[in-house]
């Protein structure tokens, strides 16, 4: 139970970073933290006591496996996070290029 809560806490720390930090790169790091929180949660959901990783090395293995579905989901989520993070960093670098700063308080052309 503690482990599950820790994942949620990690998620919330990421959210906190996004809401309060003023540096664009730190905001991107906040997203990475949120992402890790959920990925760890997925890995925990699939965990079963006394089970092994779902890899078949012999034809008839009399073993109990952990749930492989969340692991596949985590992999997909990582790929999506990779795409978003790369795009975010690219946009952040371009913004730096225009304004010469990463501080969102100084990047204020748009109002509202």
């Amino acid at each position: 139970m503690i482990a599950f809560l820790a994942c949620i806490v990690l998620f919330l720390i990421g959210l906190y970073a996004i809401v309060t930090k003023r540096n664009l790169i730190k905001i991107v790091i906040g997203f990475a933290l949120m992402e890790y929180g959920i990925n760890l949660l997925f890995a925990l959901i699939g965990f079963r006591h006394g089970s092994v990783a779902p890899i078949i090395t012999q034809i008839d293995m009399p073993r109990r496996f952990v749930d492989p579905v969340p692991q596949a989901l985590v992999l997909t989520a990582i790929v999506i996070a990779l795409g978003t993070t790369a795009l975010m960093l690219a946009v952040a670098l371009r913004i730096y290029n225009r304004y010469k700063t990463f501080d969102i308080a100084e990047i204020r052309k748009l109002k509202g």
Binding site: F31, L87, M88, V91, I95, K109, L110
Partner: peptide, 20 residues
């Protein structure tokens, strides 16, 4: 352009909070 990048970043932050 500066405005477009800024709008995109803002949109990304909101949209990704929703997605996550």
């Amino acid at each position: 352009d500066a405005e477009e990048l800024e709008a995109s970043f803002k949109y990304m932050v909101m949209g990704e909070i929703g997605g996550l």
